[in-house]
């Protein structure tokens, strides 16, 4: 597997690609926070948030509907929010009897449910855009500058660096399991569930030991190359006037959104 197997970064030379990573992280979090703060049913403000998102998409030069196509990852969780339709008191829209349970959907509940979905849908798109226009090491670097404790960012950097190596390791283990538990006509591969679980557990244990021993080798190799407990960055990040302008413009947009949402 290649090092960039897990990357979500799409290479480009747009305004957003060259924007300072700190500004991008802050604006993304501010946008999501703004969505959370908007009242239920503030459709005009949600519309503005969507326009904000489209503008960001356009500025990224990745295509107008770039994030739209990838925006349904959070959908399974909507199932949990469906129950809001019945839990919030309001004007009853109907009454459904399901055996013992009586479900009464209300207008306030429906409003809340749809608002939650819209908020989540808008937010996840901005998060997708952030990792699409920013290389992940730059995000980690930005987090360090944004006062995330360095031990956490260092762990994240190692995690990112070695994830694909250990994924290769998992793939090898899974291939070996597959190769040795053949399925014959009339009998499926492997043993019963207990056998399967034990094999999976052994794989996890095996992977743990291989990772543990690998970390020793990695550390020694790093020491021999001059590691002093800090990661070095190739390109130094500097916030320039353009970055400030974009950041301030974005925050102003969010403030307008909040005002519209509360009118």
């Amino acid at each position: 597997m290649h090092a960039d197997a897990f990357d979500r970064y799409h290479h480009g030379h747009s305004l957003l690609h060259h924007l300072d990573a700190r500004i991008k992280v802050v604006v993304t979090v501010a946008f999501i926070l703004s969505n959370v703060l908007l009242p239920d049913g503030a459709w005009a403000a949600f519309g503005l948030a969507f326009i904000f998102l489209l503008i960001a998409n356009a500025l990224s030069q990745l295509g107008f509907g770039f994030t739209l196509k990838r925006s349904f990852v959070a959908l399974p969780f909507a199932l949990a929010a469906v129950t809001a339709v019945f839990s919030i008191p309001g004007h009853a829209l109907a009454e459904w009897h399901l055996g013992m349970i009586t479900l009464i959907p209300t207008d306030a509940g429906l409003l809340r449910f749809v608002s939650i979905l819209v908020r989540s849908w808008l937010s996840v798109q901005m998060a997708i855009l952030l990792v699409s226009v920013t290389e992940f090491p730059d995000i980690i670097h930005a987090l360090t500058h944004l006062y995330v404790p360095s031990i956490i960012t260092t762990i994240i950097a190692f995690l990112y660096r070695y994830l694909f190596v250990l994924t290769d390791e998992v793939m090898r283990l899974m291939r070996a399991r597959q190769a040795r538990s053949a399925a014959a006509p009339g009998s499926r591969s492997g043993g019963n569930v207990w056998w399967q679980a034990r094999v999976a557990g052994n794989m996890a244990g095996q992977l743990f030991l291989r990772s543990y021993e690998r970390s020793d080798r990695i550390y020694n190799a790093m020491l021999s190359r001059g590691y002093k407990g800090q990661w070095m960055a190739m390109h130094v990040q500097r916030i320039q006037l353009r970055d400030w302008l974009v950041g301030v413009a974005a925050v102003c947009g969010l403030i307008v959104m909040q005002i519209v949402g509360r009118l």
């Binding site: 569930v193 992977l207 550390y219």
Partner: peptide, 30 residues
């Protein structure tokens, strides 16, 4: 300081170990 790289690799281990699965009845997996 030796432990920090160890913790990083172990984080990658947890991430990778979450991909290990085994089939349970009915198309679901552990």
């Amino acid at each position: 300081e030796r432990q920090v790289p160890l913790m990083g690799i172990m984080a990658a281990f947890i991430f990778a170990a979450q991909m290990i699965n085994f089939p349970v009845a009915g198309g679901t997996s552990g």
